[in-house]
Design a binder for these strands. Structure first.
Lengths: 254, 254
DNA sequence: GAAGGTTTTGGTCACACAGACCATAACTTC
DNA sequence: GAAGTTATGGTCTGTGTGACCAAAACCTTC
C-alpha cells in the first residue's frame, strides 16, 4: 500500500491535497410497522445547523471502515438498534450547499426493523422517535438538510423492493401470520388486498411460508386464531405479490 | 452560506477540520449495444496507480457541482459523449484501501448510449474503447480499483430496470424496429424471446411504440423490411416485457 | 349460554395473459 | 426463378389473478 509520505511510484501530479476535500456522512432511514402503519425513526438535532429540527440518524464515515460498517455503527449508536433485519444502501446526495457548514456527501441507507415497540424506550439518548411517514412527509414537520427528500426516496425504494425482494419479511418477526404479512403490503403500497387471494398466493405455492404448527392469539376484536408461519427460502429470489393492476371487470362494491 | 473562516452561529464542536477528509469521485459505467451484444466503455489509465490497466471513466467531484452534474461532465470529458439517453446514479463505494493513494469514496453512475459507432473514434484522447461486458468480466481483463465489481453491479441494475423502467428504449435510436428492441432484451438478459409474442406485447397494446410509417432497409441477409417505430409514453411507467418464467409445458424443440 | 360481530381460511369462476406454435408476406442472395 | 431469411399476423391452451362466496373459530355483549 502506498503511503502518503513516500512518493515512490506515484507521479508528481498526484498530490492528494490538490483535490477538493469532502466530509462523507452515512444517514440511515429506519422504517418499521407500527399499528399497521409505516413509521420512520427520527432524531431531534441538538446542535446547529438545523438545531431542534428533526433528522434521520447519521454521522461521519471513518477512514478505516466501509460504508456498510459505518451504517451499522450509526444504526447502533444513534437509534440504539443492534441489528436490523435489513440494511441496504440506496442513494448518495452531494448537492453543494446541502450542508451549510462544509462540503458534505452523504450515502443513504435503508434499514427495516421488526417489532420496535421498545426501540424508542431503549435508546439511551432518548431523543429518537417513531413518526408515521405520512406525517413526516406531509410538510408539517420540517426536516433538517435534504432529509425529507431522502426519506421520500427510501419509501419509494421500499415500494419497488416489495415486488422484487423479500423485504416484506423484514418488517415482521421470525414467526408471523398471513394477515400480518399482508398488512405490510397494504401499508407500504396504500392499497387493500383480498385476504383469501393473498393467502392462496403465499401459502399454496410452497417455499414462501413454512407452517410452525402454532397459532397466534386472536386480538381483542375476536376472529379465528391465525396460523403462525416462518419465512421460506423463496424470498431470496423475489416477492410473491405484485402491485395490483386496476381491472375494469367486477367492481361491484364501489 | 457559512464560510470556514467565520464561526458565527456554529458551535465550537463543529470544526470542519476535525472530521476525516475524503476525496469524492464520480465513475460512469457506459453501456451500449454493439452488434447485438452488450458493451461497456473502458479507458486505459495513463497514470498510477493501476497505470496501463483498464478502468471506467470517472474523476473527482468539484465542490460547486452536484453529483449528477459531475457525472455528466465526466461523461463528456472522458468518453467524448455529449448526452446519454440515460444517466442514473446506482451505488456508492467507500471501502478503505480501494484507492491506494488516499481515502476515496466514489459514486457510480450508469449511462446508456444509443448508436455509439463513432464514440470510440470521436473521443479526442483516443484511449476509450468499447469492450463486450462478457470479456470485461470474465477475469481475463484486469480492471483498476474495484471497477470490476462496479461494472457487475451496473449490469445487474440494468437487468432489473429492464422490467421496471423504460431503459430498453435508451439502447435504441429515436426510431427503431421491433426486432432491434427485442435484441436489447435478449442481449441484456441472455435469453431468447419469441419474436411474434414480443411484437404482440409492444405493438398491440397502444402507448408503447408509435408507427412512423417508414420501414427499415433489410440487412444483407434479406427478410421482410421491418416497420420503424418511435417510443411511446408508456415507457415512463415501466416496461412491457417481463423476464421469461420457465414453464414445463411445451418444450418441443429441445 | 345464546347472539352477533370479526377474522381466518378454503373454495369457485371467469377473464386476461403468456408462451408455444403455425402461416403468410416481403425482402435478400445465388 | 429458387431458396433462404426476416417480419408480421393469427390461433390455441394452460396458468394466474382478481372478485366473490361460505364455513370455521374465536371474541364481546346481552
Amino acid at each position: 500500500m502506498t503511503t502518503k509520505t513516500g512518493n515512490r511510484g506515484v507521479p508528481a501530479g498526484y498530490d492528494a491535497s490538490r483535490y477538493p476535500a469532502f466530509a462523507v456522512t452515512v444517514d440511515v432511514v429506519i422504517l418499521t410497522m407500527v399499528n399497521g402503519e409505516l413509521h420512520v425513526v427520527l432524531v431531534r438535532r441538538g446542535v446547529a445547523p438545523f438545531k431542534g429540527m428533526w433528522a434521520i440518524p447519521g454521522g461521519f464515515k471513518r477512514p478505516n471502515e466501509t460504508l456498510d460498517e459505518a451504517a451499522k455503527r450509526e444504526l447502533a449508536e444513534e437509534a440504539g438498534v443492534d441489528s436490523a433485519s435489513l440494511l441496504t444502501q440506496f442513494a448518495a446526495y452531494g448537492d453543494p450547499g446541502r450542508d451549510p457548514r462544509m462540503n458534505v456527501v452523504t450515502v443513504a441507507y435503508l434499514a427495516v426493523l421488526r417489532d420496535v415497540g421498545d426501540v424508542v424506550a431503549s435508546t439511551d439518548a432518548a431523543h429518537a422517535d417513531l413518526v408515521p411517514v405520512s406525517e413526516a412527509l406531509d410538510g408539517t414537520m420540517e426536516l433538517a438538510f435534504d432529509h425529507a427528500q431522502i426519506v421520500r426516496d427510501a419509501v419509494e425504494r421500499v415500494r419497488a423492493d416489495l415486488e422484487l425482494t423479500g423485504i416484506a419479511t423484514a418488517f415482521v418477526g421470525p414467526t408471523f401470520t398471513v394477515a400480518e404479512l399482508r398488512g405490510v403490503y397494504e401499508a407500504v403500497w396504500g392499497v387493500q388486498l383480498d385476504g383469501a387471494n393473498f393467502r392462496r398466493r403465499v401459502v399454496t405455492e410452497s417455499g414462501w411460508v413454512i407452517p410452525t404448527g402454532r397459532r397466534a392469539r386472536p386480538g381483542s376484536t375476536g376472529g379465528k386464531p391465525a396460523e403462525l408461519f416462518r419465512a421460506g427460502r423463496m424470498w431470496r429470489q423475489g416477492g410473491p405479490i405484485r402491485y395490483p393492476q386496476p381491472t375494469d371487470r367486477g367492481r361491484r362494491n364501489q
